[in-house]
């Protein structure tokens, strides 16, 4: 195995005509890795505050996500019940064991069956938090971890995501900055998911269809007020 590594690195160095340990190149590479810099951030990714919120909603709906806005987490159970009812779904939800969602008063909707944990094949509806929303393209950013199992984002037919309004940022680069501030430079959660609308395919005669393997529907509940988590700036 290490033979192949040396063979390949040797071929690369010969092809690049590196005759000696290239200190200059190594220094440039180290500098780039130590201080990651943003390249071009388009105007569309520079919005802030209300503009960013409006842009996020516009872009998310453009890619077939649905959104609604509520004042606080206390309103979530009633909205979830109404959403399931409108979609003609059983009142059963698998919820991420996310401390940010612990304050949701599910007992206000006694008919909703709430379980927490990862998703199984028979879960039709999941509810998760979100690390960030990117206004530029209406993209949700979710990080994996014990409080946020990745299967919840992909196995169920319906994905309901809670996004605190103060977590909406302009660009993807803003989310990397927030992530580094929280976890440290170069440290990544096991999975970072960018989710831009519900699953889709156009593999049969280029006909656009939603719900290929991931969720058929993505519903984003925007929650006003400050989120409880420490990672937001």
């Amino acid at each position: 195995m290490s033979d192949a590594r040396e063979t390949i690195l040797g071929s690369i160095r010969r092809a690049l005509d590196r005759r000696e340990p290239a200190d200059v190149a190594a220094a440039a590479v180290a500098a780039r890795l130590t201080n990651p810099k943003a390249n071009v951030i388009p105007e569309r990714g520079r919005s802030q505050g209300t503009d960013a919120l409006e842009r996020f909603v516009f872009e998310a709906e453009r890619v077939n996500a649905t959104t609604e806005r509520v004042a606080d987490l206390a309103s979530v159970p009633e909205r979830v019940r109404a959403y399931l009812q409108a979609a003609n779904l059983p009142a059963v939800v698998k919820v991420a064991p996310d401390p940010d969602l612990a304050a949701i008063p599910w007992d206000r909707e006694p008919l909703l069956q709430i379980a927490t944990g990862k998703a199984d094949d028979h879960d039709a509806v999941s509810l998760t938090g979100s690390f960030a929303g990117v206004a530029e393209s209406g993209t949700l950013v979710l990080l994996s971890g014990p409080e946020s199992p990745t299967t919840l984002n992909f196995l169920p037919d319906y994905h309901v995501a809670i996004l605190f309004v103060d977590r909406i940022v302009g660009s993807y680069e803003d989310t990397w900055a927030r992530l580094r501030a929280r976890a440290g430079a170069g440290v990544m959660p096991r999975v970072v998911n960018w989710i831009t609308g519900p699953s889709r395919t156009a593999d049969i005669e280029q006909t656009l269809l939603l719900g290929a393997h991931g969720p058929r529907r993505l519903h984003i509940i925007l929650v006003d007020g400050a989120s409880s988590s420490a990672e937001t700036s």
């Binding site: 971890g145 199992p149 970072v192």
Partner: peptide, 19 residues
């Protein structure tokens, strides 16, 4: 603008991960 799912994966399941 972006494909629906863009995923950055870094290594196997970690302590406490459910999946």
């Amino acid at each position: 603008d972006l494909s629906v799912y863009t995923t950055f994966t870094t290594g196997p399941r970690r302590g406490g991960d459910l999946d």
